[in-house]
Amino acid sequence: MKIAFYGSSLLSSYWNGAATYYRGILHALAKRGYDITFYEPDAFDRQQHRDIDPPDWIRSVVYPATSAGVRDALAGAAAADVVVKANGVGVFDRELLEGVIAQARPGAPRIYWDVDAAATLDEMRNDPDHPVIAALQQLDLVFTYGGGPPVVDAYTRFGARQCTPIYNALDPATHFPVAHDPAFACDLGFLANRLPDREARVEEFFLKPASLLPDASFMIGGNGWADKDMPPNVRAIGHTGTALHNAFNCTPRAVLNVARDSMAEVGFSPATRVFEAAGAGACLITDAWEGIEMFLKPGVEVLVARDGADVADILAGLSPQQAASIGEAALRRVLADHTYELRAAEVDAALHEACARLRDRVE
């Protein structure tokens, strides 16, 4: 089965947190026999900051971020058995969504894959002319990065025929325990790009604990933090490519996950970082959000903090032995229950059901 997938970037994680999610899901689908072409625009300097070369399990097409480039890329949709438009491409999103629907051949499921569903739904509530609202009448299936029942219910109310969360997971071939790297030595590491809808929570869950624990060492990786006012015990290391993530996760005594505002509010939305850190055997501290127990057991496989004071208290009482035990338990759990191979089986089942519905509709 051929899939034409239009997303932000498979090749670069530069200002593109969805990269490892795309790689994990699509690689697992390729292993199941899917023939996939990933279309991404040459935009936002991502091609100058590639993490990987085009892999041999997928056809990678990088097109100019122009109207002509989009038009040429969309021509590939007509030859596919399944067409997918992911949200957040960043350029020509409306044109890509409308083009995927228009170009898909009869009988090919048309799918919207929302990797930021909580934010998208907020936009839709505030804009009755949002392009996704109109497109839902012609889309056969919505996949989401997460969100659980609240997101499914919201998309259904907007008119989605079917909405299925496909959660983040672990690709054990890319994220795994490695030797400690002195370059990433610290008590608490945090990796995330600076975004407006995360910054206040980063101040609470990361910078506040750093102020409360002046003798502890903190490290922050990701784009956008260079001009942020931080306590003197915080070291900002800038963009950290995916090739460095295992060492970044393995080396600190603990690593932190901080959800974006919308994802924390909705819940059921574990970031890729949760599974990547667990896959590296890291001791993970996460901000509290509804549904965490679906993925990792609090107090055993993950440590949960309600606010910055909680993070400081957890870190102050966390021994290296306790941290190692939690990281080992998390690794066992994600390998058993949360791999992209398992997520791909869910996608495969949903795609076959969508194809069957379309055949029944024609007949």
Results as ranks from 00 to 15, higher is better:
Ala350Asn: 08
Val100Phe: 02
Leu296Glu: 02
Ala104His: 07
Leu284Asn: 00
Ala288Ser: 11
Arg94Gln: 15
Ser13Ile: 01
Asp337Glu: 15
Phe92Cys: 04
Val300Lys: 13
Ala179Pro: 06
Val132Ser: 03
Phe92Trp: 14
Ala354Val: 01
Pro128Gly: 11
Val62Gly: 00
Phe248His: 04
Val132Arg: 01
His239Gln: 13
Pro165Phe: 02
Asp310Leu: 12
Pro214Trp: 11
Asp261Phe: 07
Tyr6Phe: 15
Val311Trp: 05
Phe190Cys: 04
Ser67Met: 13
Arg94Phe: 13
Glu341Met: 06
Ser325Phe: 08
Phe38Ala: 07
Gly241Glu: 15
His239Phe: 15
Ile314Arg: 08
Arg125Leu: 14
Phe268Cys: 03
Glu328Phe: 07
Gly238Ala: 12
Ala305His: 04
Gly222Phe: 05
Asp72Ser: 14
Arg359Asp: 11
Ile52Thr: 04
Leu29Asp: 03
Pro64Ser: 10
Tyr340Asn: 05
Ala309Trp: 08
Gly327His: 10
Ala336Glu: 15
Leu97Tyr: 03
Gly224Leu: 09
Asp215Gln: 15
Glu265Ser: 13
Phe295Tyr: 08
Ile166Lys: 10
Lys297Thr: 12
Ala118Glu: 08
Pro128Ala: 13
Arg32Lys: 15
Ile292Tyr: 11
Tyr14His: 08
Leu358Arg: 06
Ala288Gln: 13
Ile25Arg: 13
Gly69Ser: 12
Pro64Ile: 09
Glu276Lys: 00
Arg361Ser: 12
